[in-house]
Design a protein around this nucleic acid. Sequence first.
DNA 1: GTGCATCATCGAAACGTTTCGACATCCAGC
DNA 2: GCTGGATGTCGAAACGTTTCGATGATGCAC
Lengths: 338, 338
Amino acid sequence: MVSIHDVAQAAGVSISTVSYALTGKRSITESTRLRVEEAANALGYRANAGARMLKGARTNLLALSAPLHAGTHAPAHMTFVLAVVNAAREFDYDVVLLTQDDATDGLRRVSQSSLVDGIVLLDVSTVDERADLVRELGVPATLVGIPADTDGLTCVDLDFERAAWLAVERLIALGHSRIACLGQSPAIYERGSNFPPRFRDAFIAACEANGVLPVFRPCDEDATSVGRAINDIEAQLGAAPTALVFQSNEPVQAMALDLLARRGVRIPEDLSVISACSSFDTAHLEPAIDVIPLPAEQSCARAIALTMRQLDGLVQPHVELIEPWFVEYGSVAAVPAD
Amino acid sequence: MVSIHDVAQAAGVSISTVSYALTGKRSITESTRLRVEEAANALGYRANAGARMLKGARTNLLALSAPLHAGTHAPAHMTFVLAVVNAAREFDYDVVLLTQDDATDGLRRVSQSSLVDGIVLLDVSTVDERADLVRELGVPATLVGIPADTDGLTCVDLDFERAAWLAVERLIALGHSRIACLGQSPAIYERGSNFPPRFRDAFIAACEANGVLPVFRPCDEDATSVGRAINDIEAQLGAAPTALVFQSNEPVQAMALDLLARRGVRIPEDLSVISACSSFDTAHLEPAIDVIPLPAEQSCARAIALTMRQLDGLVQPHVELIEPWFVEYGSVAAVPAD
DNA sequence: GTGCATCATCGAAACGTTTCGACATCCAGC
DNA sequence: GCTGGATGTCGAAACGTTTCGATGATGCAC
């Protein structure tokens, strides 16, 4: 391995001059700087990561805790992981991926050995031991997701409440009054997952605020459950809904659309459909469905940015919510005349 | 951060004694060792990663190059990434995840800065610039997948040729002679992807060796393509196949099964179906399909093991193929009497 | 009791970088 | 021509660990 010493020798300057020339932390004459850079390039010099870390400078490494729960939707998960890695690279950071069940062990290990400068947590649940650990470690960290107790933590997430309101109010504005939401698997609401309950509660509140019956129905991921859920929704409304909000994963949405198509329900003529907080491409559904996207890219980029600012001591712990937006594919229309 | 110095002080011994007590590289009296371990635990000591790296010892970090091509199947990808991380942890290694398009840059960066001890490459294609880079860097590395030129490289993969033979010979043994294979998207065969051509060619060879017409049909990932492909297969065979081998991704297999069910084809009475080299759970298909699994766990565990052995200088570059095996779910039966 | 081998522990060097203080050199201002 | 401040470069310390060689203690054989 070529060291700074080799570069110094090649450029005919001292070690410290090389360091200053390459990091730019002190002014160096243009000509010297060029000579050093040339030598460094020619030799393929790269500062030894260990030495830089040891000296207390940045390690340029971030820990990413991305545990895989049983119910995790792999593509969505992948999207977030990827978004974090890409965002980190923008700041010249690499990512150490931690996936183990005993997530706290891993985080302890990498942060207490000063391997990483900071931490990003994905898939944060309402009560999450990693949140407590982050508080304990006192390391720069950002959570993607909002735990119950956000005290002393920096968190980023889509504003699920506003997403629910956005969906409901768009439907209300188009005259709909028989609105239902097809939710995630019941298990998810019980296992203190983070955003599903937030969305559900906001959906219900939005319906009530607009004077329509709030019909929210969780649903498991199989065809019969989907059928039962849709029947159940009709029963609760006393008639077929004129608008349906999906807050479920891709297979469930596909199954529901399939079922509705077989029943002869036309979208959007008979039924307006909105896919809320979906991480996949709803344009590929049959038919394409209007969506309020779950913005993996934005959330993760923001999480990285916030972690970087914590490193610079520029930011206090706080919660940041990302404004939801609507993407139209033509699956929403005015309420049909009865 | 608590350093080895603090531990030494707490235990009343010298720094080097602490190091020897914790690493076990020299004999230390039982009582002293216990005292040191106690102090280390009490203080929550963890060796500074930078210092350990600098000293030239292991960094206990591995680079995982997992690029995301357009056609990558996210769940499969995730499975491999996860398998690598878990396997690495068994050796007390953490994983730096590299996903960028310019994969070679990242690998250069982390290996030339001595950040990682070794490299694992996923999703290796026939002609892969990362393979050349690995050769150039001379770093311990293992490829999951087999490039065209394996000279000087250590590679692991499922033995796709034998998987094809395994599928074909099982069907032949049950009396089938109208056997077809539904392959991946044509683009995959053109874009030097690694195993699909290997499987295809072996499938054709196995058919020919058994005196049956080799019908192999690539297929894009949409319902109409699947329909066309199946019609095409019947046309080539001059009749409906009695056995079908899937060498395609989950959606295509699901669509094909759906289509066949609508046409009234019963599995396995009318048609035997085998899913070859599938990374997802074919037991969840409708109906469950016999499978020759793509063993992410095994491949990755072996890749990690081989990388570790390279670190110890115990292994020469070579290619290791994993023996395929068959899992029955009842989708294969003897050929129906005409 | 002396000499020798064995064993546990220690001191110090080395790893490659960053960074602080020091030291020339140069130029402007008087 | 001298002073004083800028500017560019250098030497050396420090980061925390591992590891080599050295040292002191202990036990055993003669």
